[in-house]
Amino acid sequence: MSEVSLLARLKDAIVNLDFDGSKHLAQEALAKGIPPNEIITKAISSAMEEVGRKFEASEYFLSELIVAGEIGKEISQMLQPYMKDAEIKKIGKVVIGTVKGDLHDIGKNIFGMMLEAAGFEVIDLGNDVPAEAFVEAVKNHEPDIVGMSALLTVTMVEMENVIKELKKAGLREKVKVIIGGAPITEEYAKRIGADGYGKDAVVGVDICKAWIGKK
């Protein structure tokens, strides 16, 4: 099989969400000596673009976008040992967490997975995260972005507290802050001094990518 057709089959397998088939084809591509970077650009990235287009066109569900992202991530990890350090650089670093008092983290998890699929390094602090833990994580990991989620109106107020604590620690200007969750609005984000509001995970990731692009 030619290099072109092998990469095309790999792309199709990812678009069709065929986990095992994709891994098998990626291994075959490596065995044929196709450079990892070429596998990433011509198969994985191209497949992700196609899946993204299908999602935008309401042909695919968000959950399918996530599955495709996971396949892409797994294959990329498989390729890493064959790549030079410079080739595996992440596009940015994001600290995420669901704020104190709130245990509803599925939206935050989806956001995290989609960030990883987009090439970010993600440090997930989990749920019920106090302001001090966000501050500590910013000190330790020096992320580009902090993402917070909340599902309850009674817990969303904690987001403002986190921003205040970041200011107190002198860290606010070093990071962008994005917030999201069912009760959150653009207006609320502005009011508490967040830089962005992701109405869903897809929008949130687009905002993060735009921020990194502007740097």
């Binding site: 959950s63 399918e64 996530i66 599955v67 996971e70 599925i106 998890n109 989806i110």
Partner: peptide, 8 residues
Amino acid sequence: FNHSIIRQ
């Protein structure tokens, strides 16, 4: 469940 549902 949480792991599985978002992956269908």
